[in-house]
């Protein structure tokens, strides 16, 4: 049901469409945050950010805390884009295809 095309004024009113959008964004944010947190934990258990800073081509001098934070932001950016992508393609395009496959 959730993948049916959203046509304003026919299936949902403005308020509901806003809620659908917010709900999707909420899911994208939450799922990406959660996976990014797990990824950072595993990654930084294996690699020391202070050491990685010296290895990188930028040769930046970063403290561990900055490394952890930077790593987490990177992970979150990646997982966020992946989740956003999934969120966008979850809804079928508003074409006849969606009408033919209301449950797919």
């Amino acid at each position: 049901m959730g993948t049916e095309p959203i046509v304003k004024n026919r299936d949902f009113n403005d308020r509901q469409i806003k809620r659908i959008f917010l709900r999707r964004m909420g899911i994208v944010l939450w799922v990406s945050f959660f996976t990014a947190a797990v990824e950072s934990m595993v990654f930084f258990a294996l690699f020391d950010p202070a050491y990685l800073g010296q290895l990188s081509s930028l040769a930046v001098d970063i403290t561990r805390w900055q490394g952890y934070a930077l790593g987490f932001v990177f992970f979150w950016a990646f997982t966020f884009s992946a989740a956003l992508f999934a969120g966008v393609v979850m809804a079928l395009p508003r074409t006849r295809l969606a009408k033919r496959n209301p449950h797919s």
Binding site: M1, G2, D11, F12, N13, R15, Q16, R19, I20, R23
Partner: peptide, 17 residues
């Protein structure tokens, strides 16, 4: 509100908390 016009399942999914 046009809640009456929508299908029941959508109502429960998207109604305000």
């Amino acid at each position: 509100m046009t809640d009456q016009e929508t299908k029941p399942i959508e109502l429960s999914l998207y109604k305000a908390h």
